[in-house]
């Protein structure tokens, strides 16, 4: 990893409607990590934050949209 790149941000902090590449899924819950994987949500894949609704984050991964809560959005580092 390049040292001088700007500090990694979580999905909860990124701009709307911009495509990002997932850097890491930071969770201790292996089962959850596997589940996110089967949705195509893992490092190296593209993700777009579409909107923030009622405290939840609407993200688009592999042509599908999901609603995730803040905690999960914070675990996805781009």
């Amino acid at each position: 990893m390049k040292r001088n790149e700007k500090a990694a941000a979580s999905l909860a902090e990124v701009q709307l409607n911009r495509e990002y590449v997932i850097h890491e899924v930071r969770t201790n819950d292996e089962e959850l990590k596997n589940f996110l994987f089967t949705l195509g949500c893992y490092e190296g894949e593209k993700v777009t934050l579409l909107s923030v609704l009622s405290g939840n984050y609407i993200i688009s991964v592999k042509d599908a949209r999901y609603c995730v809560d803040k905690e999960l959005a914070e675990a996805i580092i781009v």
Binding site: N17, K46, S51, L53, S54, D63
Partner: peptide, 21 residues
């Protein structure tokens, strides 16, 4: 492109609005 904002999102913004929802 399916990653952009669509009509769905516009409807979502109202139906899932933090106060109006």
């Amino acid at each position: 492109s399916s990653n952009g904002q669509t009509k769905q999102d516009a409807v979502d913004k109202i139906l899932a609005h933090p106060w109006l929802g």
